[in-house]
């Protein structure tokens, strides 16, 4: 059905990537890999260096040192890049007076892709009805879909999407989620950047978290969930409980919250309950701390700046 044959998903490798803009270090010795067949979230607060990293990967920005490759080759060396990697960058615009279909036809011609793909990709992202409308009248959500259509023109095995959920309504985000899952299930490499973890936490398999240009964490999303597992405990006999828990679980961590509760990390609830019984500590509350990934994310990324 498609006018082009899909290229296989290949890994993305970023190795010791560093980029200085004048005296500003935008990316600082960053290394990570992105695997095919999975959706990887590329996360970090605004200004963390995500876009610069992606622009280095896509040959738009020359790295100061290090490199970023797609299937072992730089963007320029892929020969027909649109066939290998499709990308949608945030600060990549449209001429407001050009219609959606012509926008894609221009890109198809430039990328050496059959122009029929313009109509095919418009259908894929649900913009067939608006194909001949000028982009100036498009909503932000429609522009995001058009960006996605452009990324899919060459039916590439690798997709690099910068903040694709920006401007989408909840329905659009649900659609994007299913769409990205589908693309990964076809064996493609999907790298999606976002500054809000909650936006992509139901979509991604892996996360690469950066802050201030440096890697904070690269792991499966599930590891991040475990990392954040903490218990909230209220007891009048806090000291006795801490001693008892520590005896059973030496790696447990303890913090006291502002409202007087005790937060215990790296330990199961059953261990705390058993310790409380032994220490005869009265338990007023024992529950998992709200597993809010966003807070984990914030803690991780703000930790890098201290």
């Amino acid at each position: 059905m498609s006018s082009v044959t899909r290229t296989p998903g290949v890994p993305i490798d970023v190795t010791s990537l560093t980029k200085h803009f004048g005296s500003v270090v935008a990316v600082d010795d960053l290394s990570f890999s992105v695997a095919p067949g999975r959706v990887t979230g590329f996360l970090g607060p605004n200004g963390a260096g995500k876009t610069t990293t992606l622009r280095c990967l896509l040959g738009l920005v020359a790295p100061t040192s290090g490199d970023a490759t797609i299937g072992g080759r730089t963007y320029l060396d892929t020969g027909t890049p649109m066939r290998v990697v499709g990308s949608a960058l945030e600060a990549s615009g449209f001429h407001p007076g050009r219609n959606a279909r012509n926008h894609l036809r221009v890109l198809a011609r430039m990328g050496g892709v059959d122009e029929r793909r313009a109509d095919e990709t418009l259908a894929l992202v649900g913009l067939t009805e608006s194909a001949r409308r000028t982009v100036g009248g498009f909503s932000l959500g429609m522009r995001q879909r058009l960006q996605l259509a452009a990324a899919l023109l060459g039916d590439p095995g690798v997709l690099v999407l910068d903040e694709p959920a920006n401007g989408l309504d909840p329905e659009g985000i649900a659609w994007l989620r299913a769409f990205l899952r589908h693309l990964a299930s076809e064996g493609r490499t999907v790298l999606v950047s976002s500054h809000v973890l909650s936006e992509v936490e139901q979509t991604v398999d892996d996360v690469v978290i950066i802050a201030e240009g440096r890697l904070v964490r690269a792991c499966p999303l599930s590891d991040l969930t475990d990392h954040g597992r903490r218990l909230v405990v209220r007891t009048p006999q806090a000291d006795a409980l801490v001693a008892a828990v520590r005896a059973d679980a030496p790696s447990a961590t303890f913090t006291t919250t502002d409202d007087g509760a005790l937060e215990i990390g790296q330990v199961e609830a059953a261990v705390v309950g058993r310790a409380a019984l032994r220490a005869q500590a009265e338990l007023h509350e024992l529950r998992p701390a709200t597993s809010d990934l966003e807070q984990v994310f914030l803690a991780l990324t703000s930790g890098a700046s201290s």
Binding site: L76, P81, M82, L89, S92, G93, F94, L107, G111, A150
Partner: peptide
């Protein structure tokens, strides 16, 4: 200059990096 103004230069150089 329109390509710089509307930032289509990005998609231009993505499609044709030479």
């Amino acid at each position: 200059t329109q390509e710089f103004r509307h930032q289509t230069i990005t998609s231009t150089f993505l499609a044709a990096p030479h």
